[in-house]
Design a protein around this nucleic acid. Structure first.
Ligand SMILES: [Zn+2]
Length: 279
DNA sequence: AGCGTCTCCTGCAAGC
DNA sequence: TGCTTGCAGGAGACGC
């Protein structure tokens, strides 16, 4: 599932393709991807507008238009697909022969961009201002931003009694971490995911901060080499398994101490961790 | 205010 | 082999 590093890699790859381009036409093949907004909202806001800049906040992609903005969220399986032009888009979108799943597409002077999520969890939303999006407006500090400091993390942790794992998943505190990189950060920081956030000592806060930053930086490097290929709808990030130390490794030996990695459930989702060396 | 719980949706794995 | 069943998972809505 795309978390901060994957979304950042997508954004960097997308920039040269769409920045400065005029959106001639918006196609909404599956309106569910816009829910709860009506189709008219995106069509009216984005048609004939120019994409001035592409940004990322947490796991959101922002297409900043000359008036208003479009947000993309991939949730679990969302992805982008690039077409050479309107003809290829209309010929292949959801077609039986040589088809590609496409929920929403933007047609440019040069090329066309499709948003697709076969599970229809991902969303494309249109806003007049970033503040109109409650999801965007409530995001906490982006984990890759320079504002994400040890001091800031210490303050945030001190405000929360929730288990560390739940704290890291809360996008209103630190934005960008999902299940995978939360588990990985806690493994690198040698911290028990069940610990209350406010229980961390200063030394442990420093370790967690360092772990988050380095895990994301390493993953981003991985996500950029090779960079995403929007021309291939089957494409997905390769080689991320190689850097994983806890996530998805239930029963396998901890790379630090050799004990078996455990899987437990926290707030309805899986946490992978080493019971012996995460304290 | 903040936390817990339910819901969305569908590909895929597991089971028969 | 082919069908059914159940599960995963990020974020928003809702309720206490
Ligand atoms: Zn260990």
């Amino acid at each position: 599932m795309p978390e901060l590093p994957e979304v950042e890699a997508v954004v960097r790859t997308l920039r040269p393709l769409v920045e400065g381009q005029l959106i001639h036409c918006v196609h909404v093949f599956h309106p569910i991807a816009l829910k709860p907004q009506p189709t008219s909202r995106l069509v009216e806001l984005a048609t004939d507008r120019c994409i001035q800049r592409v940004d990322r906040k947490g796991k959101y992609v922002l297409l900043r238009l000359d008036r208003g903005l479009v947000t993309l969220h991939f949730r679990l399986d969302g992805q982008l697909v690039w077409f050479t032009g309107a003809a290829e888009l209309l010929g292949r979108a959801n077609a039986r022969k040589n088809g590609v799943h496409v929920d929403v597409a933007f047609e440019f002077g040069k090329g066309a961009l499709g948003f697709a999520d076969r599970r229809h969890f991902g969303r494309v939303h249109a806003w007049e201002s970033p503040n109109d999006s409650s999801g965007l407006a409530s995001l906490g500090i982006d984990a890759l931003s320079t504002d994400f400091t040890v001091a800031r993390l210490r303050e945030l942790l001190a405000e929360s009694v929730r288990p560390l794992k739940d704290f890291l998943l809360d996008q209103t505190r630190v934005a960008g971490l999902g299940n995978m990189y939360s588990c990985e950060s806690l493994w690198h920081a040698r911290l028990d995911p069940r610990r209350h956030a406010k229980s961390l000592k200063p030394e442990e806060v420093r370790r967690l901060h360092k772990a988050i930053v380095s895990v994301l930086a390493r993953a981003l490097e991985c996500c950029l080499h090779p960079a995403p290929d929007f021309r291939d709808s089957q494409w997905w990030f390769q080689g991320l398994e190689k850097i994983l130390r806890a996530y998805g490794r239930e029963g396998e030996p901890c790379r630090r101490c050799g004990a078996a990695i455990q899987r437990i459930e926290q707030s309805g989702r899986s946490t992978y961790w080493c019971r012996r060396c995460q304290k």
